[in-house]
Write a protein that binds this DNA or RNA. Structure first.
Length: 525
RNA sequence: GGCUGGGUAGCUCAGUUGGUGAGAGCGCACGACUCAUAAUCGUGAGGUCGCGGGUUCGAAUCCCGCUCCAGCUACCA
């Protein structure tokens, strides 16, 4: 429907100090699947991800490790974050780091523009300060003391009294944009998705917006405020701007207009930054707001939000080492309703891997190609007269392709997979009903056998294309076994929006026997 | 405390504006089949729809109360 139009999609940029876990990987995979789908539908697609490298925490850990913050960031990007993308096969088009010149320089341009337009002013930031932490504490880290300190505000980490300190800060007049933001949510109901996330955002803005402190002067690891180099930019203000600096804001207008506005995929914990602060910043700079901000849910382990401190954090490689990257991608896209929280368990992963990928899709591909090999000497057979059974398959494939595309368009990735899977189920049922192994025993039913196997093989072709954004490695193997590339071109070049058109794979194409796409894993937990 | 969302078969979840005997997948039992990764296909068992009231000819679906869980309640990437 939007063929050829721009589709710019982003993930949050990783805070380099974090340790990659499946939550990060989940966000990346979701964005990557959406990007691959659109790219393969002919949209002018751009997937952006990257790292956030400024701020006091990074400065501190770098110092503690005896290196500069830049060296520290370089190491983490190289050893943790870029490898993560490979582990889960993310095909990003760009990777921005907030310490790159293209970012820093244009963040300053942005700041200067807002300053000149009167959206930024110098003020006093007053907050409770913890001497132990050496920083101002957010409300969430302040608790009321007990014992001798009853009634006193204390630091949640150190349990020591906090001091009320003041610091000169620059403030962004975010409060000016309250009404415009509410109008935005009202007039574009799909701006913030899903609806539950939208409700939270609206409720938050309705209670009133305060101006936002956007500078710090107590440390220097950040982007200097252009008109006052004793201050550096607050990390969030800095980080959000990656979405525009990465596509040419401030220096390549042509590229910027080609890409912007973006679709942001974020975890719901950082929704507010993207759905409130970010659009306000853009409004101030007279830049179009994003197309959509989609807040996905959390992955729950044992019913709780996954966390390192509770030892529920799971490294993506723990899963991919056993099940492979395709299974990782498939599992989280299929088992979690995109936008809602999803419960992860090894049992569920193992069950779905075997029931859906190995027994369902993988075995289907194996049995069809094995029969082509056995009964047709390794070629795609020629179909004869069509019956209602074949017409039913054609209809299922066409409907699945259409509905899957509509689902992806609406960010409902899990639904798209459910639609695609109707093809797997229909083909397995069709083969059992038609009993090609019986047809093969009699020369009189030779033509019928050809029809059945062609139908099944062409169904695999559609599946390979439709599933390629989600399980790129397995579908590539299938594509090779179908020997489709010489006649249809590479798998990546197949138009997803035409995937449901029947009869693309010509009869007579030589096909191979297929190794198990998803081998059973006997000793899995 | 306030606000939002949710508590539906063993498990994970669907259930439009209230209406034929409450659904899917997985798991389980039984049967069919043998091309295939001991895979596939079919049938079946199984549920006080969190609790208690109310509205209605009729409620999982609307209203009230209660209970439990999760999230939000601004500077945590």
């Amino acid at each position: 429907m939007s063929s050829g139009s721009s589709f710019f999609i982003t993930t949050p940029i990783f805070y380099v100090n974090d340790v990659p876990h499946i939550g990060h990987a989940y966000t990346e995979v979701a964005a990557d699947v959406l990007a691959r789908w659109h790219r393969q539908s002919g949209d002018d697609t751009w997937l952006l991800t990257g790292t956030d490298e400024h701020g006091q925490k990074i400065l501190r850990t770098a110092t503690a490790n005896g290196v500069t913050p830049q060296e520290w960031s370089d190491k983490l990007v190289r050893e943790a974050w870029l490898p993560l993308l490979e582990t889960i096969d993310v095909a990003n088009d760009d990777f921005i780091r907030t310490t790159e010149e293209r970012h820093e320089k244009n963040v300053q341009k942005f700041l200067q523009k807002l300053y000149d337009a009167g959206h930024i002013y110098a003020g006093e930031f007053e907050a409770l300060y913890c001497v132990g932490c050496e920083e101002f504490k957010p409300e969430s880290e302040i608790v009321t003391g007990t014992g001798e300190l009853v009634g006193v505000k204390v630091c949640a980490i150190h349990s020591k009294p906090l001091e009320l300190l003041q610091e000169k800060n620059y403030f962004f007049r975010m409060s000016d944009f309250q009404e415009r933001l509410l109008t935005l949510y009202e007039t574009r109901p799909d701006f913030v998705q899903p609806p539950s996330a939208r409700n939270e955002v609206i409720a938050f803005v309705q209670q009133g917006l305060k101006d936002l402190s956007i500078s710090r002067s107590s440390f220097d690891w950040g982007i200097p405020i252009p008109w006052d180099n004793t201050h550096v930019t607050y990390v969030w203000f800095d980080a959000l701007l990656n979405y525009v600096t990465a596509v040419g804001y401030g220096e390549n207008e042509e590229e910027f207009h080609r890409r912007w506005p973006a679709n942001h995929i974020v975890g719901k914990d950082i929704l507010r930054f993207h759905a409130v602060i970010w659009p306000a910043m853009l409004m101030a700079a007279e830049i179009e707001v994003p197309r959509h901000v989609f807040g996905h849910g959390w992955l729950l382990v044992g019913g709780e939000k996954m966390s390192k401190s509770k030892l529920t954090g799971i490294a993506p490689s723990e899963i991919t080492d056993t099940f492979g990257s395709d299974a990782f991608r498939y599992y989280f896209m299929r088992a979690v309703s995109f936008g809602q929280d999803g419960s992860f368990s090894w049992e569920d992963l193992n069950a779905r891997y075997h029931a859906e990928l190995a027994n369902g899709f993988g075995n289907l591909a194996s049995r069809v190609l094995a029969m082509n090999s056995r009964y047709y000497d390794g070629t795609t057979p020629k179909p004869g007269e069509i019956t209602d059974a074949e017409r039913e398959i054609h209809a299922v494939v066409a409907a699945a392709a259409t509905e899957a595309d509509a689902s992806v368009e609406a960010f409902h990735v899990h639904e798209a997979l459910a639609h695609i899977w109707t093809i797997v189920d229909a083909l397995n049922g069709y083969i059992t009903d038609q009993e090609p192994w019986v047809l093969a025993k009699n020369d009189d039913t030779r033509e019928r056998l050809g029809t059945v196997l062609y139908t099944a093989t062409e169904g695999l072709r559609a599946l390979a294309v439709l599933l390629s954004p989600v399980i790129p490695l397995a579908t590539e193997k299938l594509w090779a076994a179908l020997n489709a590339e010489p006649v249809l071109g590479s798998l990546a070049s197949q138009n997803l929006r035409a995937a449901g058109v029947w009869g693309q794979l010509p009869p007579g194409t030589p096909v191979s026997v297929l190794e198990a796409l998803f081998p059973r894993i006997e000793s899995a937990e």
